[in-house]
Design a protein around this nucleic acid. Structure first.
Lengths: 171, 171
DNA sequence: AAACAAAGTTTGATAGACCAAACTTTATGA
DNA sequence: TCATAAAGTTTGGTCTATCAAACTTTGTTT
């Protein structure tokens, strides 16, 4: 009921998935939740009761499931964190998209407001600062692609960057 | 016994702390483990038996505790991941050191080899690429410090960066 | 060496999250 | 409309990680 409820990771996952299903199909159904989480149907029911007691979902036995306003608020917050983390891990750090997604799944429950805000600013800074931006990320991709034993590609990039850098110092 | 044992987060935490205590005092003791994890002494005993069965620690009732070779290998790996993650979160992303530490504690269990390697390369790239490096991180710190309503500091930085950037294009 | 404290262990219990299997309700279709 | 399938629920059980409290072993002090 209060804003600062402390939900378990699992309960937050349920809310996230219910939001997704609700957006896709207007309502969520027990079976789809089970499928999305890769668990048995029976396990879902007790969690639904739990979420219902916390007034995070509207739930009647054998009925459809929707988020309450409060539940939607929490679900949106988790979903936002997930998207930010995944974008950062996959697009910036260049971690494999599926792995980035899995990591985001875990991290989204363990990052506080202040830290996620810092991360948002970090990504924003990389994207907007003229010293970095997409072409800098592209350089990083090349840096990663280069065989560790063959540093030539990387060295070429570093050199051309250094030339630029020195030019800047001279002006 | 096998290399690719799948340990729970909790068991990995125990190994990490035992390594730390072992480095400090040559051996680990039940009481210190309990204190470090903020749990009761009684809870530690059963976990020690568990780790002992998996041949990750040397353990006899009422005796001192040390890591086996295999246990040490795992503990070192977790500790390495922790250090990498913490450095990245605190020094690069500028997340509050205590929070960075807490986040690293959770993430260290959910990041695979390939992804941590990517992260290492990312940090290495930021540190070594002439376009980024410490002064770029310093710019980010100023970017963070500036009052969101007052974008002047940030704009100043962006402008001077853009001037450099344009100079580079001209050459 | 006896007494006491500290460290370690055991026991029984709890909470969260899950499963398998039996069962009930709702929906479908012939 | 009635049988059957699909969806949802209930029940009883498991596993991990924890606690509190009683208990045992080890260590320390006098």
């Amino acid at each position: 009921m209060v804003d600062k409820m402390d939900l378990t990771e699992s309960l937050e996952d349920y809310l996230e998935i219910i939001l997704k299903l609700q957006n896709e199909n207007r309502v969520a159904r027990s079976k789809d939740i089970a499928e999305n989480m890769g668990i048995q149907r029976g396990s879902v029911t007790s969690m639904l009761k739990n979420l219902s007691e916390k007034e995070l979902i509207n739930y009647e036995p054998y009925g459809y499931i929707t988020l309450t306003d409060q539940g939607k608020k929490v679900a949106l917050e988790i979903t936002r964190r997930h998207a930010i983390l995944k974008d950062f891990l996959a697009r910036v750090v260049q971690i494999d998209p599926d792995k980035a997604n899995m990591m985001a799944c875990r991290m989204e429950h363990n990052i506080d407001r202040e830290s996620i805000d810092k991360l948002v600013r970090f990504v924003e800074f990389i994207d907007r600062c003229p010293r970095t931006g997409q072409d800098w990320i592209d350089s990083f991709v090349r840096f990663c692609a280069s065989d560790p034993k063959d540093w030539q590609t990387c060295m070429n990039c570093l050199e051309s960057c250094e030339i630029r850098h020195n030019l800047n110092k001279q002006d």
